[in-house]
Structure formats: structure tokens, C-alpha cells
Design a protein around this nucleic acid. Structure first.
Lengths: 239, 239
DNA sequence: TGGGAATTAATGTGATCACATTGTAAGCTC
DNA sequence: GAGCTTACAATGTGATCACATTAATTCCCA
């Protein structure tokens, strides 16, 4: 069994005004974010190039770019693969998200004007309707847009790139989590966040964002329902 | 005056066992970290290629990689340049460092065994001797190694890549700061950190790391002695 | 002489090719 | 038949080339 599952990728729907490199990058990024490429899957330049019907060149650059964002992993063999996930790593990614995003939210607070607030309310509404529709992919996208808009309101902000790297690393699992969320009724943390913003209460905003992140995918570790995607327990013996 | 200052780069001293791409990457990274390329300086592939006496190919990939780490900026024109620094952005980078690194330190604490502690003590001693010698470049390098070792003791670590991105973004200014530090006598925050580790006091470690970061370069903003490298005040009008 | 259009130079992008390295499979020996 | 060696295929890397786009310069005319 050496034949890996064929990759389901295409450049359709990509902005034709951009470079091929960017189209490949976006395509791969989207596939990773949606978990369409299983962890541990090896990616070769020529395979991707022929799948996407482009020359190897833009693929090389896209892979290197994604590797620099920790979305892909290049091992010593110079082979590129989708990083595997472990329960511990998942926990670390989650806590890193909390630390970084609550920080970014707090620092964004002073810059949130009424226009930005309105935009956040609009995005929150989009999340809700997508949620009611059961469109988990859309929920995920709008939710990210909500967070991105919030943090980006700080014009001197430097953390969004880092945060996006974290999103990318646990992308597949966020999708998985939102899908599972359908059953649960969750407190609307976005509303808590919006309330905090209206009251200009930075600390409350911190709490709301932290809770939102943990509510969103935090329970996944305990639910144990994604054991198939996760690496079997490693034999690490710390300390 | 269209001729930019010639770049002082070379691949000498690079590990000959690595790929050309990595050598170029390391060379550029080092130059950026040491502030040898002024902010705003445009970098062209062909210029770097001829300076380093390699083909444009590895340079392209190195530039894209550094851009993915926010160490370089690619503008719409597809031109690559060293990002400019502003006082506000500097502040944000500093606070992001504090948030991320104190988080990483706290999370590393449970994994620090005696071997790791010994290594940290060794690195701290190296910092001290380099400091006494007045070798600011070496201080910077050893100091980073100290932090990296601390955070990396957590085997499930996911933040080091993000932290390195921050270091890279304010690299030139860290160097500038350590150079200025020569005059000041600073409390040895590393010793405070080591003490906290020995007592296994996670909160004290947090405080020590935060203080170490702020001590190291925090005063730069108030000292106003790097106004020449900083962008003139922007006309942003938040809120 | 100043401003704008056309020309020219420079640059990024993408493709193709050659080579060294790595992974795999066949073949041989014991 | 097991283990090692050798041959083969596949892959990443780097170089060179062609082309489209962008920046810079020159030239012309008001």
C-alpha cells in the first residue's frame, strides 16, 4: 500500500488576477484548514504540480511558505508532510491561542470605533445564521473573520500573522469541532465580547475571547472523538 | 540618489553541508537580526543573487520564507523590502513578546529537569562573560539561546516559531538596545528566573521573564535614541 | 523650461532542464 | 530463505531561459 489517497485540490474559483503561486498557496491553505489532507500525508512537488496542472515552480514556493508558517513540516529528508497531531500538542496550541488572542483583543480595545463594532455585529450575525443553517464550513470562516476583524482594529497590531499560524495548525480540528458542536447549545461568547466592547471593559473582553476559544474546540480533547486523527500516545517520559 | 547602500552579505562560515537555500536564508536572517539592512531597504532577487554569487532561485525561496515569518514585507508591487519600524509597532512587538514568552515559560516549567537547568545556568554564565567582555553581539545570541532553551524544554512546544518571528521583527533594535545597555547596570533577571525554576514557582518565572524582556529593550522607546531608525510619526487617527 | 507620453531597462514569475540525493525494489550471495 | 548489495526510479535542488509587468529614463511638445 504505497499509493496515498489522491489529493482533492483545484485552482477553480481562485482570483485569476493573482499569481499562480498565490493560487496554489491559497488552495493548499484551504485544504489544510479544512482537514482535507490527512496528517502525516507526504506532499511531493511533482504530485501537487500535476494535480493542480501547473509547473513545479509555484508549488515549491507555496510549500516553503506554508512550512515557514508551521502549517507544513519539512523533515531532514527534505520531505514535506502534514504535521501529525497529538493530544498534548493540541492542548498547547489551544492554550497558545488563548494567550495570544486574549492579548490581541485587549490591545485592540482602545481602537474599536463604532464602525468596527458594527462590522463585528454583522459578522456575528453571519455566524449565527450559518450556524442555524448547519453550514459548519461557513461558521468556521465567519468566526475567523470575526476574530480577525477584532484584532486587526488595532492599526499597529503585530499578532494576527502569529494567530493565523495557530489557526492553520489546528485547522482540521477546528472544522471537526464545529461539526460536533451542532448538538451542543453553547453560550454565545461573541455576544459577551460585543457587550464588553460596548462597555469598553477590556478585562471582560479578555474573558469572553478566552471562553469563546475554549468553548469552540476545547472540549474536543475530553470528548475523545477524534482519536483516529490523533497520533497514538507517544512514549515520551518528561522529567 | 538611486543607488542604495551595497549590502554587506556573504555565505562564508555557513555550514557547507546544507543547501544553498538555507545558507542564503541564514545569511539574510543574520543580517536582519543584526540590523545590517536598514528598514525600508528594497531587496531584489538579482541583486542578492549576484552579491552572494548564487543563482536567483535559492534567493527567491529564502525571501518568500522570510516574508512568511514577517521578517520581510512584500508589497503589492511584488517588491520586497525590510519593514519599517514605528514607535507604536515597537511597543506592540514588545508586549507580544511578553505575552507569548511568559506564557511559554510558564508552560515549560513542569518539563525542566536538572539537565535543562544546568544548561540554562551554563548559558546564563555565557551571557555574563560576554557582557563583561562588551561583546554585544554575543550577548544577544546567548540571551536568545537562553530563552529558546527554556521554552523548548516543553516537548510539545508550539510557540517557539512564533517567538522567533517576533525576535526577527525587532532584531535590529534588540542589538541596538544591548549596545546601549553597556552603561546601565541591570538587575540580573536571568538569575531571578533560575531561582524561580529551582523553587518551581511558575508565577515567579513569569514575572522574571517579563521583567527580563522589558529590561532588555523596553527602555528604548523612552530613551528616544533610535529616532533615526524609526519612522516619523504617522498621521493615523484612531477612533 | 516643465510636464507628459513613449521608450528602455529592470524585476518578478513561471517553465524546463540537469544533477545530486534519497527511497525502493530487484538480485545476488551465503 | 534471510540479509546485504546493487541498480533503478523518484524527488528536491539549483540553474538558465522566456515573458509579462513594473519602474525609470528619455524625448518631444507646449
Amino acid at each position: 500500500m504505497k499509493h496515498k489517497a489522491p489529493l482533492k485540490l483545484s485552482l477553480e474559483g481562485q482570483d485569476p488576477a493573482t499569481t499562480v503561486n498565490q493560487k496554489v498557496y491559497q488552495s493548499l491553505r484551504h485544504a489544510l484548514m479544512c482537514g482535507e489532507i490527512p496528517p502525516g500525508r507526504a506532499l511531493t512537488i511533482r504530485e501537487l504540480a500535476s494535480t493542480l496542472e501547473v509547473s513545479p515552480m509555484p508549488v515549491r514556493e507555496a510549500l516553503r511558505q506554508l512550512a515557514a508558517e508551521s502549517a507544513l513540516e519539512i523533515q531532514g529528508n527534505r520531505r514535506v508532510l502534514v504535521p501529525k497531531m497529538t493530544a498534548m500538542k493540541f492542548q498547547e496550541l489551544l492554550e497558545a491561542r488563548v494567550a495570544l488572542e486574549s492579548h490581541a483583543a485587549e490591545r485592540a480595545m482602545p481602537y474599536i470605533d463604532s464602525a468596527c463594532l458594527a462590522e463585528l455585529e454583522r459578522l456575528d450575525a453571519l455566524v449565527d445564521t450559518a450556524y442555524d443553517r448547519g453550514d459548519h464550513a461557513q461558521v468556521s470562516i465567519c468566526n475567523q473573520q470575526f476574530h480577525r476583524t477584532l484584532y486587526s482594529s488595532n492599526p499597529h497590531q503585530v499578532t494576527v500573522a502569529l494567530i493565523e499560524s495557530l489557526w492553520l495548525q489546528l485547522g482540521p480540528f477546528m472544522r471537526l469541532a464545529t461539526a460536533q458542536l451542532a448538538g451542543h447549545y453553547q453560550i454565545d461568547r461573541h455576544n459577551e465580547a460585543l457587550d464588553a466592547i460596548r462597555r469598553r471593559d477590556a478585562f471582560a473582553l479578555r474573558l469572553a475571547i478566552s471562553a469563546d476559544i475554549r468553548d469552540g474546540i476545547g472540549f474536543v480533547t475530553s470528548s475523545g472523538l477524534f482519536q483516529d486523527v490523533i497520533e497514538p500516545r507517544t512514549n515520551s517520559a518528561p522529567l
